Computed example of a mutant assay.
Amino acid sequence: MVTVAAVAVTAAVAALSPLAAAPAVAAVPGVLSVPPPVRPEDRVTVTGDHLTVTVLHAGGGRDGTYELFCHPEAGSHPDPAGACRTLDRNTRWGRDVFAPVAPGSVCTMQYGGPATARVTGTWAGRPVDAVYDRSNGCEAERWDRLVPLLPELRA
């Protein structure tokens, strides 16, 4: 009786499986059945976090648009592993790593240069569309917190 139930459950699971079109494996009582290998066309591509970083007016060959993939690290970014580590280190539950400077913040009037950046994409399952500049001390600190995602600049 148990064998009949096991075969029925195996058949039901196989029918609901995305590999249902794959050749069936016969269930033999007392023998462990192994599902067929996953074919390349059946694999689901799982992508990690993806960001596009555009930097302007940074000078020194640092301007450009870069793709960054994390988990695993890849892309055209000059330092994907370092950028992903920095983002992971700055990501906290309930806080937006890309949040703008809070309204009403008291910031030094220290100008950090003309560099600007825009970061778009997906991080930690959430959409990202953040703009960066170095127009005052708060903005420069916000930028520096994400180096090497954003290029290192010192005024």
Rank of each mutant, 00 (worst) to 15 (best):
A6H: 05
N136S: 07
R118Q: 14
V44D: 06
A58D: 08
W143I: 06
G113E: 06
S76K: 01
A20D: 14
F69I: 05
R95F: 10
G75Q: 06
P148M: 11
G112W: 03
D88W: 05
N136W: 03
G125F: 00
A24Q: 07
A5F: 12
V2D: 13
P40L: 05
C70K: 07
G94V: 06
L32N: 08
T108G: 15
S17F: 02
H71L: 07
G48P: 13
A27N: 13
T122P: 00
N90M: 05
P18S: 08
G112I: 08
V2W: 15
S105R: 06
A20P: 05
A12L: 15
A140K: 03
A5N: 11
N90L: 11
Q110S: 10
P18A: 03
V97P: 15
N90T: 10
T10A: 13
D88L: 12
P23V: 08
G104D: 02
A21C: 04
A24V: 10
L32E: 01
S135M: 08
A124F: 00
V55T: 07
A22E: 13
P23Y: 05
P151F: 01
P78C: 02
L16C: 09
R95E: 13
L87E: 02
T86F: 00
V38N: 06
A5D: 12
G104R: 03
E67M: 02
E152W: 09
R39F: 02
V2C: 11
S135T: 13
E152Q: 14
L56M: 09
D49E: 04
C70M: 14
D96F: 07
